Amino acid sequence: MKPKIYIDGKEGTTGLQIYERLGGRDDIELLLIDEDKRKDIEERRKFLNAADIAFLCLPDAAAREAVSLIENDTTRVIDASTAHRTDPDWDYGFAELSKAHREAIKNSKRVANPGCHASGFISSVYPLVANGIIAEDTALTCASLTGYSGGGKKMIAEYQDENRDPRHDSERIYGLNLHHKHLPEMGYICGLTQAPVFVPIVGDFYKGMATTVMIPGVDAHLVHGTLAKHYEGQQLVTVAPFGGEEPMIYANTLAGHDSLKLIVCGHEEQTIVTALFDNLGKGASGAAVQNMNIMLGLDETTGLNL
């Protein structure tokens, strides 16, 4: 019998991207709610309880509500919201961080899918803390440039409006209060005792992401070697040759892909690590499908574009 999959919130950007990756597969059965009942609580309850795996592509409060509607011990959940990413009762859905993370996802009933900016930061920082290359109290700085699809339907419409604000032609720095919603996740998962200074930036391109962490006082070659060893053999996270493959980095290089590439640059006293990926791929929907594949015991790349 094919596993039954339900996407609660299929109409949003993340949900639609998950549907695109699953719609043509014949190894699963997609449960599709009637359009006019997608906000009906009782109808959602029925679909959530009928699913073997349910994706939650919802605002935080609605995601918590969806979990409360599940009344059985069999429905497994992958939550794409921020609601459960620092909840110790949920498993963090980034399999490449460690064997323990991968095993937890495989057996989990509740998986919190990582945030996009957080994926770039954590992929760079977690192995360095875990291997003692940087201390837990290191003062880190991070700037993350993303395509505008990361802002959801409202921002997409704003950028694609033919009468849009001409300033959208340039990059837009936001989150100026330095309390971005991904910060708790970054610190919690990496085991940091000091929150990084984090600045998110939106660019005038649909999708793609370049998250750069700046690390003072550490040899860049040591960082590169550590990351290369940590991710050796992984299919969806790779490390580029030291300094990258060209003398510049374009944020949309991996748009349309579900993989992530780390680029380490610098010298003996200063290092930057840039995570290149698609904010809708390894930064959201691609990661969610990867987690589903692992939970079902399938090759993790099934239905994904490396």
Rank of each mutant, 00 (worst) to 15 (best):
M1W: 01
Y6N: 02
G9C: 07
K10F: 09
G15W: 05
Q17R: 15
G24V: 03
R25I: 04
D27Y: 08
L32H: 10
R38N: 08
E42L: 13
R44Y: 03
A51G: 07
I53V: 15
F55N: 01
L56E: 02
P59C: 07
A61E: 14
A62I: 08
A63L: 09
R64F: 03
V67D: 06
V67A: 10
V67G: 07
E71Q: 14
D73N: 15
T74F: 05
A80D: 04
A80L: 13
S81G: 11
R85D: 13
T86N: 12
D87N: 15
D91K: 14
F94Y: 13
F94D: 07
A95S: 15
E96D: 14
H101K: 12
E103Q: 14
K106H: 14
N113T: 06
P114D: 07
G120T: 04
L128H: 03
V129I: 12
N131A: 03
G132C: 03
I133G: 01
I134Y: 00
A139T: 06
T141M: 02
G147E: 07
Y148K: 03
G150Q: 11
A157W: 00
A157H: 09
N163M: 05
R164L: 04
R167N: 12
R172A: 06
R172M: 08
G175H: 08
N177E: 09
E185F: 05
G187N: 01
C190S: 10
P196N: 01
D204H: 15
M209C: 15
M209N: 14
A210L: 09
V213W: 06
P216K: 11
A220T: 05
H224K: 13
H224T: 07
A228R: 14
K229L: 05
H230Q: 12
H230V: 03
H230M: 04
Y231M: 13
V237Q: 08
T238H: 10
T238A: 11
V239T: 08
A240Y: 08
E246M: 05
E246F: 06
P247S: 07
N252K: 11
N252W: 07
L254D: 01
G256I: 13
H257Y: 12
H257W: 04
S259P: 03
C265F: 03
E268C: 03
E268A: 14
I272F: 04
V273L: 11
L276D: 02
D278P: 07
G281L: 00
K282E: 00
G283Q: 01
S285G: 04
V289D: 00
N291R: 01
M295P: 05
G297T: 11
D299P: 14
E300K: 02
T301C: 05
T302G: 00
L306Q: 13
